[in-house]
Simulated scan of single mutants.
Amino acid sequence: MGKLMRAIGLMSGTSLDGIDVAFIETDGEDALVRGPARTFPYDEAMRRMLVNAIADAKDLKTRGERPYLLGDAERALTESHGIAVARFLKEAGIERSSIDVIGFHGQTVLHRPEIGLTVQLGLGDLLANFTRCPVVYDLRAADVEAGGEGAPLVPAYHRALTAKLPQRPIAIVNIGGVANLTWIGSDGGLLAFDTGPGNALIDDWMRRKTGAFLDSGGATAAQGRVNEDALISLLSHSFFAETPPKSLDRNTFSSEAVESLSAEDGAATLTAFTARAIAKAREHMPGEPELWIVAGGGRRNRTIMRMLAEQVHHAVVPAEAIGLDGDSLEAEAWAYLAVRSVRGLPITFPGTTGVPEPMSGGLKADPTAHVIH
C-alpha cells in the first residue's frame, strides 16, 4: 500500500444542477477513507450560460475551439469551481495546504467518441492558481485519442468502494443526465457502459412543459400514464443494439416521440424510457446482478426507482443503503482518479471504455508562483 494522498474531487454533471465537491484520502488502490462532501448549486445565470454553451458546442470539430459563448463560459465555470473549493475547505475545516491534488472534471459540452472528440470546459491552470493546489484535469481525452469511449471512468472507484460487499455480481448505476452502469463480477472483473438517458430528457421536458427544472421525486411522472407506442419508438434507437463498451452525449436522444403527450404522460413515458434502458443493459452482462445500487440524482426519483425495480429480478437500493453517498460518489471518484493519474495507474480499461489496453490519463497543472485573483 502506498502513501495516502489527500484529494478533492470536483464534478459538474450533465444535469447542470451544480458542483459536487468531495474529499477522500487514498493510495489510488484499495486504501480509501471517505471524507466530507458538499454540493454547491449553480445560480440561474450560470445554468443558462451552460445550456447555451452546450448548444454552441454542437458543431465543434476540435477540442481546442471555443467559439461564441464557450470561452466566457469556460472561464466562468472554472472560477465557480475555485469558489466552491474555497467554500468547501472553509466549511469542512480542511487546510488548503494539506491537499495533495484536485481532480477536476469540468463541464462536458460535447462527447462524440465515434469521431474521436470529447470536450469538457475547464481551465486546469486557472483552477490550480485559483486554489493554490495541483489540479488533474482532462481525464477523458487520452482514452478517446487511443480509440476508447472516454466514459464511463468511475468503475475503478466502484470496485474499490464495494470490495467488501458479499453480493456478486453487482451493478452500480449512476443516474445523472445520462445513466451509466458498472457491472462487477465475482472475480472483480469490470464491464461498464452508458445505458441510455438518465435525467436529461426528463429535466428538459419539465422545463419546457412546466417551467420546473426537474420532476421532483418523480411526482409528475407518477400522475401520468406510459405511452407504450412512444416508449417502443424511443427504445428502437440504434444505440441499444450496440455492443459495449459504449457511451453517449447528453443530447443523443430526442423526446420527439412524446411531444404530443400531456406533461404528466410525457414525464411518465420518458421516466419509463430511462428505467427500461437501464434494465435492458442486462442483455450485455455475463451474469444477472444480485444487487442494483443506484447513485446520482435519479435515485431521488421514486418513479424511476419503482419502474427499475419492476424490471429486474433482484433488489434495487439507493447508494445510502450500503453506506455510500449517492450525491458525492462521482466527485469522490474524480478525487480517486486524480490520485491514480498522479501515480501513473490505469484509469480506463478494455472492459470499461473499449480502450485497447489499461491506461492512465489526465493532465496535471501546478500553481505558478504568481497568484491569480
Rank of each mutant, 00 (worst) to 15 (best):
R208F: 05
E29T: 10
G188I: 08
K3G: 11
L16T: 03
D366H: 09
P67V: 08
N129Q: 12
P358D: 11
P367A: 09
A146N: 13
S80W: 03
R87G: 15
G217A: 05
T131D: 03
G28V: 04
F23P: 00
S15L: 07
G185Q: 04
T220D: 02
P36S: 11
E259H: 10
F240V: 03
E256T: 13
V178L: 14
E91I: 11
V136W: 01
L123W: 04
G351W: 03
A73Q: 06
D325K: 03
S262T: 15
A7H: 02
I19L: 14
W183M: 06
E149F: 02
L324G: 08
A338W: 00
I175Q: 00
T353P: 04
I347H: 00
F130Y: 14
D215V: 12
S80D: 12
A73F: 04
S80F: 06
I322T: 06
L50I: 13
K280E: 11
Q107R: 11
I347N: 00
G93M: 15
E290T: 11
E29G: 11
R299E: 09
L190Y: 08
T220L: 15
R340H: 12
W292R: 02
G217H: 05
A309M: 13
G344A: 09
K3N: 08
L181R: 01
H81I: 05
S216T: 09
R208C: 10
L10P: 02
S12M: 08
L126Q: 08
F239G: 02
E91R: 13
R225Y: 10
Q120C: 07
K90G: 07
L308W: 02
R38M: 15
A257S: 14
I102L: 14
D204K: 12
G211H: 09
R96K: 14
I94E: 06
T274C: 15
I83G: 12
S236H: 11
F40D: 05
E91F: 07
A57D: 01
G177F: 01
H81V: 05
H314W: 12
F130R: 13
P289M: 10
Q107A: 07
E145P: 06
F104D: 01
G344M: 12
Q311F: 06
I99R: 00
D143I: 03
V144E: 01
G296C: 13
L308A: 05
R159E: 09
A171I: 06
P155Y: 03
M285Q: 10
G64T: 11
I172H: 03
M305I: 09
A257W: 00
L190A: 09
L161M: 13
R87Y: 07
F213I: 13
R225I: 14
E310G: 12
A142R: 15
E320Y: 08
F193D: 01
L270S: 02
F104L: 13
G266V: 03
N227E: 14
K209L: 08
P244G: 05
L127H: 03
N227L: 08
G9V: 03
G18L: 10
A219S: 11
E149A: 14
L234F: 07
R343Q: 09
T352G: 02
H81Y: 14
A73G: 07
D229C: 11
L139V: 13
E290C: 15
M359I: 06
